[in-house]
């Protein structure tokens, strides 16, 4: 997983930003975060929005090294805080009739 480190405050994001939300700086360096992440919080969602085909849907926030966090779908029936996960790329949902693809997480 690619990360983006703010050249001023050091905050690492899992997505490309123009401006750091933490310090307002505009310079970032790409960094490699690896493929191992840890689940820090999650929910099992039983009321899913239109456009999501899976129910119940497990959603969570994972943390890569250097504190880079990412929210996403967790493909497991038994989520547990602290469990190790790895990212995979694929279909997330449908919006206005179009498929949206992105990263979700599966047990490592």
């Amino acid at each position: 997983m690619k990360g983006y480190r703010c050249n001023k405050c050091g905050k690492v994001y899992t997505y490309n930003r123009k401006v750091c939300v933490n310090c307002g700086y505009t310079g970032f360096s790409e960094t490699e975060l690896g493929d191992e992440a840890k689940l820090i919080t999650y929910t099992v969602l039983y009321v899913v929005p239109a456009g999501i085909e899976r129910s119940p849907l497990v959603l969570g926030i994972v943390e890569f090294k250097d504190g880079a966090r990412m929210f996403g779908q967790i493909m497991t029936d038994k989520p547990q805080v602290g469990m190790k996960l790895k990212p995979q790329y694929g279909k997330l949902r449908v919006k206005d009739g179009k498929e949206i693809n992105g990263y979700y997480f599966v047990p490592a």
Partner: peptide, 29 residues
Amino acid sequence: DVVTDLVSMMSHPEVEYPSGATMPSLGAM
């Protein structure tokens, strides 16, 4: 499910909405 989707449009358009974030899911996390 339609109102749930509408309300979730206030979440982050790149890193929350695409995965199916809803206000209750953020509240739960």
